[in-house]
């Protein structure tokens, strides 16, 4: 970190970006000192809920990163996979009365089956195709998963309750006067466990190392006897399991419905901010996007009104695009994302 800081030139785009960021942070601190106690508390609440919302985005982004790292496929169907997993889970629980502790493994089994099917019927035939073709294939896959999910379980909103805590956290509400959903805290805890588990898995297990080898270099991995097909099935299974976790979290929050598939679109700016290949990037990117979005939602209207005299009510419902613009601004400074590998171009 220090070494890379010392190499940083202030005249480079990154230097300028860093300076702007520092100025912004200084102004933010100054502003925070100037407002009264109640507004400050509100600001903390907004920030905290932004961070926790960001964790939810990270959960979806994680699935993307896993697949992109190991196969170079930009898996557009990750969001639909979360919906698909959520549909099966609610289907098992509500229609067949399977208890949650059984329904979850059953759904994982379904996702593994999906992974097998995807490898067998799609990926195997598309080896060595251009990335955009594979990307399009995953969009096709998203349609298929959505259609099959609807055919099997119907398209109405289904409540999901796997026994996660609900309501406001009493501890934070009484102790600090902050209103925070317990569910979001649970999501943060699950995400933390997931990241630690995935890191340990890829660091210390045989399969995890094979995954990293494939991510590093397909051909070299093949030549030391790692089977690409097996790896792909494993990666898609893991991504399926991560999708299930995301499906559970989002489903518990707002019910399992089609809009779940659209959270994938929210995960994309997270991805480009964090870099397509970095798990910590996905988490940190999610946090930045989550907080940025919440801040913008609350404060951007006021700021625009004060600065340019624009109508503050225009700046409602900006959550659709704000994350993208934030990520775009970030990319202009650092084209490979936060933790992406440095892009070296050769002829």
């Amino acid at each position: 970190m220090m070494a890379s800081l010392s190499r940083l030139r202030l005249a480079s785009p990154e230097g300028v970006g860093l300076l702007l960021l520092a100025a912004y942070a200084a102004y933010g601190l100054f502003w925070l000192g100037s407002i009264d106690e109640r507004d400050r508390l509100f600001f903390y609440e907004v920030t905290l809920s932004g961070l926790l919302a960001g964790v939810m985005y990270s959960l979806v982004a994680l699935g993307f990163v896993l697949i992109f790292k190991s196969s170079g496929i930009f898996n557009f169907s990750q969001g639909v996979m979360a919906l698909f997993a959520g549909l099966f889970l609610t289907g098992f629980m509500n229609d067949f009365g399977v208890p949650a502790f059984l329904a979850i493994p059953l759904t994982v089994a379904v996702m593994v089956a999906v992974a097998f099917a995807v490898e067998r019927f799609v990926l195997r035939h598309l080896v060595n195709q251009e990335p955009i073709i594979l990307f399009m294939a995953t969009i096709g896959l998203a349609f298929v998963l959505e259609g099959v999910g609807d055919i099997l379980w119907g398209s109405d909103v289904k409540p999901l309750d796997v026994g996660l805590p609900r309501g406001a956290s009493d501890f934070l509400l009484d102790g600090y006067g902050l209103y925070v959903e317990k569910l979001e805290i649970a999501a943060a805890a699950v995400a933390a466990v997931l990241v630690v588990a995935l890191s340990l898995f890829s660091q210390y297990t045989r399969i995890g190392r094979a995954l990293r080898a494939v991510a590093d270099d397909h051909q070299a991995a093949l030549s030391v006897g790692i089977s690409l097909r097996t790896i792909w099935v494993i990666v898609w299974s893991i991504a399926g399991a991560v999708a299930l976790v995301a499906g559970i979290m989002w489903g518990s929050k707002s019910g399992v419905q089609f809009s779940l598939a659209l959270i994938a679109l929210k995960a994309l700016p997270v991805l480009i901010l964090g870099g397509f290949t970095s798990i910590p990037g996905a988490i940190l990117g999610g946090l930045i996007i989550g907080v940025g979005e919440k801040w913008a939602e609350i404060y951007l209207g006021e700021v625009m009104n004060a600065l340019f005299g624009l109508n503050a009510s225009w700046f409602t419902a900006i959550e659709n695009w704000f994350a993208y613009v934030l990520a775009l601004a970030f990319l202009l400074v650092r084209p490979q994302g936060l933790f992406g590998e440095k892009i070296i171009e050769r002829v």
Binding site: I133, A142, F143, E146
Partner: peptide, 13 residues
């Protein structure tokens, strides 16, 4: 929807 997705995949393959 399903058929459309499946056709796209088939086509790409």
């Amino acid at each position: 929807i399903t058929a459309f997705g499946a056709l796209i995949i088939t086509f790409l393959i």
